[in-house]
C-alpha cells in the first residue's frame, strides 16, 4: 500500500506542481481542484462558501496550497475514491491538517524526495485513520515519527534555542556583577 502510494506521488503530473492562484498571481485554482476531487467521491459539491479558505488564501499560504494540490493528486487514487465515508476527513486534512506540515516541507520535496514522499503518504493515512497494510499501529506510528518533519524541525529549533540559552547563562554567570555576587549573612 505504502509503495503504491509513494509511487503514485512520484508520478504526480507537472500541472499539480504549478503555482496555485493567489489573487491575480498563479495558475491553478486550488478550490476548483479540491471541489472536483471531492465531487468524484460522490455526494454534493462543496459550496463556494466551503471553499473560501482556499479562495481567500494569501501569499503566505502558497506552500500549503501547493501541498493541497499534491495531496489531492495522491488521494485521487481509486482506493480512496471508492470510500466516500472518508470524504469528511479528507476535507479536514486538506483544509486544516496539512498547514503545519506545509510550513516545514514543500510540495516539490513531497514529490521528488523518497523520504518526504513516504512522509506525506503516512501523514495522510494517519489523518484519515487508516492503518497501512501489514503494519501494527505501533509500527505505523514509529515509522511516521521517524519521518516526522514537523517534529524534526521542532527539535532542531529547540536545540538551537537551548544552545543560545546555555550561552546566555554562561555569559551571565561569568559577568563581573555575577562574580561580585551579593553579601550573604551565612554561608550554605
Amino acid at each position: 500500500m505504502i509503495e503504491a502510494l509513494t509511487h503514485r506521488l512520484s508520478q504526480c503530473p507537472r500541472e499539480f506542481l504549478d503555482a496555485p492562484r493567489i489573487g491575480n498571481q498563479g495558475v491553478i485554482r486550488t478550490a476548483a481542484v479540491v471541489a472536483d476531487f471531492l465531487a468524484d467521491m460522490g455526494g454534493t459539491l462543496p459550496s463556494i462558501k466551503d471553499c473560501r479558505e482556499f479562495e481567500e488564501a494569501g501569499p503566505r499560504d502558497e506552500s500549503w496550497l501547493r501541498l493541497v494540490l499534491v495531496s489531492a493528486w495522491l488521494l485521487h487514487h481509486r482506493w480512496f475514491q471508492d470510500r466516500p465515508e472518508l470524504k469528511e476527513n479528507i476535507w479536514k486534512l486538506l483544509e486544516k491538517k496539512l498547514k503545519p506540515l506545509a510550513v516545514v516541507v514543500s510540495a516539490d520535496q513531497c514529490v521528488l524526495e523518497p523520504d518526504r514522499r513516504e512522509e506525506l503518504v503516512r501523514f495522510c493515512l494517519d489523518a484519515l485513520g487508516i492503518l497501512p497494510a501489514g503494519e501494527t499501529p505501533a509500527q505505523a506510528a514509529d515509522r511516521l515519527k521517524a519521518l516526522d518533519s514537523i517534529e524534526r524541525v521542532r527539535v532542531m529549533k529547540a536545540a538551537k534555542e537551548a544552545e543560545e540559552h546555555a550561552r546566555k547563562v554562561r555569559e551571565a554567570m561569568q559577568a563581573k556583577q555575577a562574580q561580585e555576587a551579593a553579601a550573604k549573612a551565612m554561608r550554605e
Partner: peptide, 18 residues
C-alpha cells in the same frame, strides 16, 4: 548542564554566582 535548569525566560540581569 546547569543551563538546563535555568528557566528559558529568566531575567539573567539579576543573576549572581556562588
Amino acid at each position: 548542564r546547569i543551563h538546563g535548569l535555568v528557566p528559558l525566560d529568566a531575567d539573567l540581569s539579576r543573576l549572581i554566582v556562588y
